[in-house]
Design a protein around this nucleic acid. Structure first.
Length: 890
RNA sequence: GGGCGAUUAGCUCAGUUGGAUAGAGCGCUUCGUUGACGUCGAAGAGGUCAUAGGUUCGAAUCCUGUAUCGCCCACCA
C-alpha cells in the first residue's frame, strides 16, 4: 500500500458511505446559533447589506405539538430567508407563539377535567396560572421543533402574543380605535357557543349540513281555526313573538291581524304579514323567534316585536324566562332535551301534525364543534364600515391595498376570494367570554356605571370620583392580537429602529385556510395603526394531507409526525418532500415513501461530495485546457444558477428543487462525475461548491455539513449560510449552445452503444470494441476515454470515414455511424428487426414534419425561424432514413 | 343558491408568453458485486393530455358548452 492510498483511506474512515443526519443536525444548528447570523444586526458585511428582508413567522398556537403543516411553512420561509440572507440582504425572521385563547383554554380545561377539576373550581386567577404553566411547556416544545427543522429565525427577537410588549400594543390600538369611534359596544345577535360560554366571530362558525327534521305544529287562532307552522327547532317556540305570512298568500289573507296562541304556553302572539316569508317553503307560515335566529331578529326589529331569550349562557332553558313566560316545567333543560320534551308534549296535546326529514345547514363552533346558538348579547365590535381618515372605511382600505396591487397575493386566484369576503364583511365581534386572553382595557364605575377606556386602570371614576372600579370581564378575540403581528413583533407602539427598518414585511407566508381569520385582519390593523400595508406579498400554502388525500387526524391514525420523519430520514429530506411537488394554494399529498425518496437524494449528494472530497487533488484545469465535458458542465451550472435564482425569487421552490435534482443527479452524478474519472484534471470541486450554495436554502443541514467537511472556506465567516450568492453571468449564447450540442452527441453515442449491449445481452464484464465514423472526429477523439469507459468498450476507433467492419451491429445517428463488431454474437434477424424499428420511428417523425411543411399556411404565417427549423429537421430526417434503408439492403 | 379551482403514465405531480414525437419522481419489467453511493447504476414498458365544439399555420396550453371531483362563501324557517 502506498502512502497516498493510506492517506485517503484514513480520511475515508471518517467519511461514512451513508449520510447520517441524526448525528450532524443538532450540531450544525448550534453552530449557526452561535454564529449570531440569525440576527440581522450580527450579519457579516453589514455595510453592504442595504436592502432589508423580513418575514414574521406565523405564530403556532401555544397548544403544543407541531404538525406537517408547520413544517411546510417553516421549510418555505426558511428557504426564502436563507436565499435572501445569502444574497446580501439584511434578513430577519421573527419566531413566536400565539396564545390562541379559545383553543388553549379548551385544551387546559380538558386536561383539568381528566383530574376531575373544572375551571370554575379553580376560579379565574388560579385557572390562568394553570394555563400559563401549560403554555410555558408547550412553548419550549414548539421552539425545539422549529429548531429541528433547521429554521434560521432570530431567537433573540422571539415573541408571544401575550407578552408585555404585545399586550401594550393590543391595549394601545384598542384605545385608539375606541377614541376614533371604530370600536363600540352594543346589543347584537351574536354566535354563541354554549360549551365555550362565549361569543364567536362570524368566520369562526363552521356551517355543516345535518340531517334534521321539519316539525309541523298547529297554532290555534283565537277567533277559531288554526295555522300550521313548519320549524326545524320546535323548542324555540317558547320564545315565539309572532307568526308571519306572505301578504300575497291568498290562503292566509283572513288570518292577518288575528291573535294566535303559542301551544304549551298559551302565550298570545299576533299574526303579521311580511313579504320576507317564502310561500313555497313549509306551510308558508313562519314563526318568529327574535331571540334565537338572526333572520327572526331582523324581522322582529322591523315589526317591533318583543325579544325573549329562552336560554341561559350554557344553552339551558333559563330560570328567569321560564317563570316569566309560563314554561317553568322546562326550566334547566338543555336545548336538545327541551326539544324532545316539547315534541312529546305537543304530541300529547295533539298539536304536532307531522314530522318530515329535512337537511339543513347548522353552525358549529370551529373549536369544539358544538352547535352554535344565535343569541342577543351585549358585546364589543369593530366597525368596518365607519369612514375614517381620507373618508374611507377599514373595509375599503383593506380592499384597496390589494386592488391597487400594493399587496400581491400568491396564487392570484385568492384575490377573488379575498374581495368576495371583504365586500360581505360585517362588523367584527371582538369580545369573548373566555378567561384566557387579553383583558379589554375597559373599566366601569361601580357607582355611576361610567365607562372608561384607557390603558391604565383608573384610580377613580372620572365622573363621580368613586373608587369602585371594575374591569370588563371579557377578553379579546385571539385574532385581534395576532392581527398586529407584523408590527407588534417589531416593537410597536414604540417607534423602534426595527419598525423603521423592517416594516412592511417582505413576505407573509401562511395557510390559505386562515386568509380571512388572519391575513385580512392584519391588513385592516396595519392600515389603521400604521397607515400602510403589513406586507408586500402573501404566499398561501395548502394543507398537507395523507397519501390518499385525507386530512391527517389522530382518530383515523394517518398522522405523519414531522419530528419522527426528521429523525428517520433527516430534516432536509422532510423539507424537500414538502417542497417538491407542491405549489401555492394547492393541497399536498404526502407519504413516508416520498420522504424516503428524498433521503435517497440527500444520500446521493453526500456521496457525490464524498467522492469529490476524497479525490480532491488541486487538479483544476487551466481555462484554456477545458475539455468538452468541463465546458458542458460549467455551462449547465451557469444555466442552473440562473434558473434556480429566478425560481427562489418568485418563490417557485418546487421548480428550484426539481432543477437542482435534475442537475445534481442527472448531469453531475450520472455524466460529468463518471467522465471525470477518465480525465487528469476536472472542475468537480468548483461545481460542487456552487451546487452547495444553490441548494443551501432547501437542504441547509446537509449542505452546511459538506461545506464544513470539504473545508471550502476557512476563517470566521466560513459558514455556508452566509456565503455570497453567485452572480448570474451573461455569457455569449452561441458558443455554449455549440458545447451543448456536441455533448448531446457524445451522450447519444454512449447511450446507443449501451442500448445495443442491452439488446444483445452482452455482459457488462465482457469488453467489446467499436468503430465510429463521424465528421466530428476531432471532438470525439478528445473524449475517447470517456466513450470507452461509459459504454464499456475495450477500445474505440474514431475516424472521419471508413469501411464497414464485418459482422458488426450498426448504429446510425445524425452525426455519427457506430459499428460494433459482434463476432459470434452476430444475429442477422435481430439486427434487421432493430433497424426496421428505427426506420419506422424515423419515418413516422418525418411524416409529422412533412405534414407541417406541406401546409401552405404554415409556410406563409408561421415565423420564419420556425419554418426554417422544420425544414432543417426534414433534411436531417431524410438523411437518416436514407442511411437506414441502405443498411437494410445489405 | 353564489363563487373558485381541478381533470396529463398504475400513483404523485411538472409543463413559462401557444411552436419538435408531452416530462420527472415513485412503482413496474430486464440486466448488473465497474474502488462515491445497492439509500446505487444501465436499458425498457407505460399517456387519444376528462369530453364535445371553436379560435389559430399550429392547442395539454386560449375561448365556449358538458361530465366528474374538490374547496370556499351564504340567514329559507
Amino acid at each position: 500500500m502506498t502512502t497516498k492510498t493510506k492517506k485517503i483511506n484514513s480520511k475515508k474512515s471518517q467519511l461514512q458511505t451513508t449520510y447520517e443526519p441524526k448525528k450532524v443536525e443538532d450540531k450544525i444548528y448550534k453552530t449557526w446559533e452561535k454564529s449570531g447570523y440569525f440576527n440581522p444586526d450580527k450579519l457579516p458585511d453589514k455595510k453592504s447589506r442595504k436592502k432589508s428582508y423580513f418575514i414574521p413567522m406565523p405564530p403556532p398556537n401555544a397548544t403544543g405539538i407541531l404538525h406537517l403543516g408547520h413544517s411546510l411553512m417553516l421549510a418555505i420561509q426558511d428557504a426564502q430567508v436563507r436565499f435572501h440572507r445569502m444574497r446580501g440582504e439584511k434578513t430577519l425572521w421573527i419566531p413566536g407563539t400565539d396564545h390562541a385563547s379559545i383553543a388553549t383554554q379548551n385544551v387546559v380545561e380538558k386536561l383539568l377535567l381528566k383530574k376531575g377539576v373544572t375551571k370554575e373550581d379553580l376560579g379565574r386567577v388560579n385557572f390562568l396560572k394553570e394555563v400559563d404553566k401549560f403554555v410555558k411547556d408547550s412553548k419550549n416544545t414548539i421552539k425545539t421543533q422549529i429548531k429541528k427543522m433547521g429554521s434560521s429565525c432570530d431567537w433573540s427577537r422571539e415573541r408571544y402574543t401575550l407578552d408585555a410588549g404585545m399586550t401594550e400594543a393590543v391595549q394601545t390600538i384598542f384605545v385608539n380605535m375606541y377614541n376614533d369611534g371604530l370600536i363600540y359596544k352594543g346589543w347584537r345577535m351574536v354566535n354563541w357557543c354554549p360549551r365555550c360560554v362565549s361569543t364567536l366571530a362570524d368566520d369562526e362558525v363552521d356551517h355543516k349540513e345535518i340531517e334534521g327534521n321539519l316539525y309541523y305544529i298547529k297554532y290555534p287562532i283565537k277567533d277559531g281555526g288554526f295555522l300550521i307552522v313548519a320549524t326545524t327547532r320546535p323548542e324555540t317556540m317558547l320564545g315565539d313573538t309572532a307568526l308571519v305570512v306572505n301578504p300575497k298568500d291568498k290562503k292566509y289573507l283572513d288570518f292577518i291581524g288575528k291573535i294566535s296562541q303559542v301551544p304549551l304556553t298559551q302565550r298570545e302572539i299576533p299574526v303579521l304579514s311580511d313579504s320576507y316569508v317564502e310561500m313555497e317553503f313549509g306551510t308558508g307560515v313562519l314563526k318568529v323567534t327574535p331571540g334565537h335566529d338572526p333572520n327572526d331578529f331582523a324581522l322582529g326589529k322591523k315589526h317591533k316585536l318583543d325579544v325573549i331569550d329562552i336560554f341561559d349562557d350554557m344553552g339551558k332553558i333559563s330560570d328567569k324566562a321560564s317563570e316569566y313566560h309560563n314554561f317553568a316545567k322546562y326550566k334547566g333543560l338543555d336545548r336538545f332535551e327541551a326539544r324532545k320534551k316539547i315534541i312529546d308534549d305537543l304530541k300529547k296535546e295533539g298539536s304536532l301534525v307531522k314530522i318530515e326529514p329535512h337537511k339543513h345547514n347548522v353552525g358549529h363552533c370551529y373549536r369544539c364543534k358544538t352547535i352554535i346558538e344565535p343569541k342577543i348579547s351585549e358585546q364589543w365590535f369593530v366597525s368596518v364600515n365607519k369612514k375614517i381618515r381620507g373618508g374611507k372605511s377599514l373595509k375599503q382600505k383593506a380592499i384597496l391595498a390589494v386592488k391597487d396591487k400594493k399587496i400581491e397575493i400568491i396564487p392570484e386566484k385568492f384575490n377573488k376570494t379575498y374581495f368576495n369576503w371583504m365586500n360581505n364583511l360585517h362588523d367584527w365581534c371582538i369580545s369573548r367570554q373566555i378567561w384566557f386572553g387579553h383583558r379589554l382595557p375597559v373599566y366601569y364605575c361601580g357607582d355611576c356605571e361610567n365607562t372608561m377606556v384607557q390603558i391604565k386602570r383608573p384610580k377613580q371614576c372620572a365622573k363621580c370620583k368613586s373608587k369602585k372600579i371594575k374591569q370588563d370581564t371579557s377578553t379579546l378575540d385571539t385574532w385581534f392580537s395576532s392581527g398586529l403581528w407584523t408590527f407588534s413583533t417589531l416593537g410597536w407602539p414604540k417607534k423602534t429602529k426595527d419598525l423603521k427598518e423592517f416594516h412592511p414585511a417582505s413576505l407573509m407566508e401562511t395557510g390559505y385556510d386562515i386568509i380571512f381569520f388572519w391575513v385580512a385582519r392584519m391588513i385592516i390593523m396595519s392600515e389603521y395603526a400604521l397607515k400602510t400595508i403589513p406586507f408586500k406579498k402573501v404566499y398561501l400554502h395548502g394543507l398537507v394531507l395523507d397519501k390518499k388525500g385525507i386530512k391527517m387526524s389522530k382518530s383515523i391514525g394517518n398522522v405523519i409526525n414531522p419530528l419522527k420523519m426528521s429523525e428517520k430520514y433527516g430534516a432536509d429530506a422532510t423539507r424537500l418532500s414538502l417542497i417538491i411537488g407542491n405549489s401555492p394554494g394547492n393541497n399536498l399529498k404526502l407519504s413516508e415513501e416520498k420522504i424516503a425518496s428524498f433521503r435517497n437524494f440527500s444520500n446521493k449528494i453526500w456521496n457525490i461530495s464524498r467522492y469529490i472530497i476524497l479525490n480532491k487533488k488541486d487538479k483544476k484545469p487551466a481555462s484554456k485546457k477545458l475539455t468538452l465535458p468541463d465546458k458542458w458542465i460549467l455551462k449547465k451550472l451557469e444555466n442552473l444558477t440562473k434558473d434556480v435564482t429566478q425560481h427562489y425569487e418568485k418563490i417557485e421552490l418546487s421548480l428550484a428543487g426539481e432543477k437542482l435534482r435534475e442537475f445534481i443527479w442527472g448531469d453531475l452524478a450520472d455524466w460529468y462525475l463518471e467522465i471525470s474519472k477518465t480525465q487528469e484534471k476536472d472542475v468537480l470541486n468548483q461545481v460542487l461548491k456552487q451546487v452547495l450554495i444553490l441548494s443551501h436554502p432547501l437542504l441547509p443541514f446537509l449542505t452546511e455539513y459538506i461545506w464544513e467537511t470539504a473545508e471550502f472556506k476557512k476563517g470566521p465567516k466560513k459558514l455556508l449560510m452566509v456565503e455570497p450568492w453567485p452572480a448570474i453571468t451573461k455569457a455569449s449564447k452561441n458558443k455554449p449552445a455549440q458545447v451543448e450540442k456536441e455533448f448531446e452527441m457524445l451522450k447519444s453515442i454512449i447511450t446507443s452503444i449501451r442500448n445495443v449491449r442491452a439488446e444483445y445481452k452482452i455482459e457488462p464484464k465482457q469488453k467489446i470494441s467499436a468503430v465510429i465514423y463521424s465528421k466530428e472526429e476531432k471532438i470525439l477523439t478528445s473524449v475517447k476515454p470517456a466513450i470507452e469507459f461509459l459504454s464499456g468498450l475495450s477500445h474505440v476507433t474514431i475516424k472521419k470515414t471508413g469501411e464497414k467492419p464485418e459482422n458488426s451491429s450498426e448504429i446510425i445517428l445524425k452525426k455519427a455511424s457506430i459499428y460494433i463488431p459482434m463476432g459470434d454474437l452476430t444475429n442477422k434477424e435481430k439486427e434487421v428487426e432493430r433497424i426496421q424499428k428505427e426506420l419506422k420511428n424515423a419515418k413516422d417523425y418525418k411524416l409529422v414534419i412533412q405534414k407541417k411543411l406541406e401546409n401552405e399556411n404554415f409556410i406563409k404565417r408561421a415565423p420564419e425561424n420556425i419554418v426554417k427549423e422544420e425544414q432543417k429537421k426534414l433534411k436531417e430526417q431524410n438523411m437518416l432514413i436514407k442511411k437506414l434503408e441502405e443498411k437494410l439492403k445489405l
